[in-house]
Nucleic acid binder design. Sequence first.
DNA 1: TCACATACCGACCGACCGGTCGGTATGAGA
DNA 2: TCTCATACCGACCGGTCGGTCGGTATGTGA
Lengths: 206, 206
Amino acid sequence: MPATVTRPTKSEATAARIIAAARHLFVARTYADVTTDMIARAADVTKGGLYHHFTSKEQLYVTMMLDDLEDKRVLFAQAVASPGTARERLAGLTRDFLELPREERELTRLVRRDVNTFSGEEREQLVRAYQRALPERVQEIIEDGIRDGELAPGDSRILSWSFVALVEVVIGDYADRIYGTTEARLGHVVDLFFDGAATQPAGGTT
Amino acid sequence: MPATVTRPTKSEATAARIIAAARHLFVARTYADVTTDMIARAADVTKGGLYHHFTSKEQLYVTMMLDDLEDKRVLFAQAVASPGTARERLAGLTRDFLELPREERELTRLVRRDVNTFSGEEREQLVRAYQRALPERVQEIIEDGIRDGELAPGDSRILSWSFVALVEVVIGDYADRIYGTTEARLGHVVDLFFDGAATQPAGGTT
DNA sequence: TCACATACCGACCGACCGGTCGGTATGAGA
DNA sequence: TCTCATACCGACCGGTCGGTCGGTATGTGA
């Protein structure tokens, strides 16, 4: 009867509550340290209720992560599609990231942290979803930048991973204690990546 | 009777065997996924024998990590103390790192991965030992570089973490599939950190 | 050779945890 | 109002794993 876009049923609402509780717990503790009981209690259901909606702890975790990474992929794809120089677009992507609520930022690091816990198909799914959400989006911008002569030629895969690594430094707990503003973090990451830390362009390391 | 430097007793040799086995397993699997039984079997002792030398699984892990991080601290301190420009010294430190056997390289990442598993004193110990081994050593060189005008002024703490993050990208599994040589990795990290990825020094991100 | 400490064994314990299952509550359609 | 599906409960199970403990082997000093 309502609008064409279905409103969430009670069942969907419960599942969403469970996922939210799981997300909250998984970012704070290790996968193995979070028990299904903890998740159920935090979501105000019993373990039986939890297993009514999810077939296993692994499946719950993977579902939660895939949902979130798909949201991120969409978010970052917008930054990729926006106009401007590579520098401006990477700054935009980074700003989108930095302006996410803290928990959503931290979620990104879960894959890197927990990926060893899984194996086979689940592991592949998680890795692929992560790559699709972040490094591959960054890589697109970097390849445009190289093509336009804005960035020096180089392996765009490693460059994008490097950029992502810099971003993840600046979203971490440690940086939280140092940076006051999003602008400061943003400027730091983008400036360092584009211009480097040296005062003069020297070169010839080895 | 032997030289003044004592030769390892049988007991010390067993403890070392256990630590080596633990190291090997902990780098490959998560802390929680490695059982004391696995470690004992890999070290060719029983669980009882393991608990004769270590009081708990946690203590074994922490001992192993602290030992290793202290070795690394000494190694990197040499790079800090060596002569040359900041660029040369950071390149030297990175080369020392990259030339370590694979398992020793990966060990560095364990703290970041497993630190959430512990709490209280153990957690503090691990974090401090890691900082002392790597980021603080890098920070020393960076501060010299800023003082000498070789590096642009900036927060040396964040700069050192950024450099370490770049190094860790380049020692990871992903980079293993891309880079052929240590020289290529080394050049990439140091050049990116000092000179940036842009062709021309632009600026003004925000 | 006796005494004692230290190294090590391996069966066992108890707690915990993922997952199940028989059952109840709720609500919608006939 | 009867029926049936779906949502959910909570006691329970099977297995695992960190840790223990009584015992044996080994070697060393007296």
